[in-house]
């Protein structure tokens, strides 16, 4: 189900029934060029991060949109993934969403041991200390699109104590 949307602030969203391209950027990412979307109406929005308010605002825009719409998300991987998860919950298909994640940006690492969502700028395949339980977490390709983050699990757990 699509999470309950907050009413969009007056004058910020596209008109009801929008079927063009919605381009959302997080942080300082550049607004992506409308590749392959030539001739489609556009709506641009920029947020500092994919926090609760930004996602509510995105959901409000998507609730007004109609099938035919395309969504482009650009910014750090954590924000792009969080927005993609919200879009999927609103019913968007993969084919309708373009993800442009800045690979050096922050990522979400979900701790398998205490369920804390950690943020790190370390790349995939590295380690991070969990802010919740201090376990050193390894994370690699195990990614949840629903959560928008990587599975972090105790690094070196299989090595002799």
């Amino acid at each position: 189900m699509c999470p309950i949307a907050m009413a969009p602030a007056a004058g910020t969203g596209p008109e009801a029934g929008f079927r063009g391209v919605i381009r959302v950027t997080f942080g300082t990412a550049a607004v992506p060029a409308a590749e392959g979307d030539a001739g489609m109406a556009g709506h641009d929005a920029r947020f500092d991060a994919a926090d609760r308010e930004a996602l509510a605002s995105l959901i409000a825009v998507l609730e007004q949109a109609r099938v035919g719409v395309r969504l482009v998300l650009a910014g750090p991987p954590a924000d792009v993934a969080a927005a993609a998860a919200a879009a999927a919950a609103c019913g968007l298909l993969e084919e309708e969403v373009t993800l442009l994640a800045n690979e050096s940006g922050r990522r979400l690492v979900f701790c398998a041991h205490c369920r804390t969502a950690n943020t790190t700028v370390q790349g995939v395949g590295s380690e991070v200390d969990c802010e919740g339980c201090a376990t050193t977490l390894a994370f690699s390709g195990h990614f949840s699109r629903r959560i928008g983050g990587y599975l972090g699990f105790a690094a070196h757990a299989e090595e002799a104590a």
Binding site: C2, G17, R19, L62, E63, A65, R66, V67, G68, V69, C90, G91, L92
Partner: peptide, 9 residues
């Protein structure tokens, strides 16, 4: 109909 369906249709 094709231009007025909510997302997820």
């Amino acid at each position: 109909r094709l231009t007025d369906q909510k997302l997820g249709t």
